[in-house]
């Protein structure tokens, strides 16, 4: 079985990004970059699946030269090889999906697993767009019934169940967990509760340096990379300021009743 996974280079989601004074762009110089945390979950799931069923895990990223670091991280986690589509252009979800569709044509994976969203643009689109372009079944927001503290997780069991050419996906939906069965090949996107991604170790980081990483310019795939959704400018959200510290439960109740009138 061959599984293609994505690894997007994003700004550190625990730090606030600054906006240029004229609002024309985000200031990312000097910021720490990390792998999109949802993509790490995708890589982890792929590794568990190939451990159980055999096969190969291929890590994909489209982005600037430095995005190779995030691919190497996926390789250090245990993936077999990487594909880096080099571009300095800002890609929207749609361009990424069409680039991925080209790579899928070449690689013919049985499964593509992506993070459900990237923590920088929060679009939550690439997996669904890819499935739409390919005409494949999609299972978004993959999760599992057992919690992340259960024995299955400790044993590093996959959350996706593959059987008879189908993948069963347990999905986080409003009001519960839904199970769907997808004909393979299929596209799956990961939610937070699918697994705890493994950490990389120094020996594995060293090993990853020797793994194959193909670099191709994104432009060479013949995909129009101009955005369908243009980012025009950026602004601060309305600020919320600290209110007052109250000294007791009685004062709190009094204020909620009389100042805000939010309780009777």
């Amino acid at each position: 079985m061959k599984i293609l996974v994505t690894m997007k280079r994003v700004t550190d989601y625990e730090r606030k990004v600054k906006i240029a004074p004229d609002g024309s762009h985000l200031i990312t110089e000097g910021m720490n970059f990390v792998a999109n945390p949802f993509d790490e979950i995708a890589v982890e799931e792929a590794l568990r699946l190939t451990k159980a069923h055999g096969g190969e895990v291929v890590v994909f990223s489209a982005g600037p030269k430095d995005a190779a670091q995030q691919i190497r991280q996926g390789l250090a986690m245990g993936a077999d090889r990487g594909i880096h589509l080099l571009t300095d252009k800002e890609l929207d979800s749609d361009a990424v999906a069409r680039l991925l569709a080209k790579v899928v044509d070449q690689e013919k994976p049985d499964l593509v697993i992506l993070g459900k969203q990237a923590t920088d643009d929060d679009a939550n689109q690439a997996g669904q767009l890819l499935a739409g372009y390919l005409g494949w079944a999609q299972g978004t927001f993959a999760s599992k019934h057992e919690g992340l503290e259960g024995p299955e997780e400790k044993a590093q069991k996959p959350g996706l169940a593959i059987e008879g050419g189908k993948v069963h996906v347990v999905r986080e939906v409003d009001g519960g967990l839904e199970t769907i069965a997808l004909d393979m090949p299929a596209v799956v996107t990961t939610d937070l509760r699918l697994n705890h991604p493994r950490f990389t170790t120094l020996p594995n980081i060293m090993k990853a340096k020797k793994k194959k990483l193909d670099e191709v310019t994104a432009e060479s795939l013949g995909v129009d990379l101009s955005p369908k959704v243009k980012m025009l400018r950026f602004s601060e959200p309305p600020a919320r300021t600290a209110g007052q510290i109250v000294d007791s439960v009685d004062t709190l109740i009094h204020k909620l009743k009389n100042e805000r009138k939010v309780i009777a």
Binding site: D92, S93, D94, A97, D122, A123, N124, Q125, G127, Q128, L129, L130, A131, G132, Y133, Q138, T140, F141, R171, E172, V173, D174, P227, K228, V229
Partner: peptide, 23 residues
């Protein structure tokens, strides 16, 4: 942009060849 909307709508955008703005 409920979980259902987030699941379905981008796929429809691909079928329509349309750009989509989320959330």
């Amino acid at each position: 942009a409920t979980n259902h909307g987030k699941d379905v709508l981008p796929r429809a955008a691909a079928l329509l060849g349309a750009g989509m703005a989320s959330d």
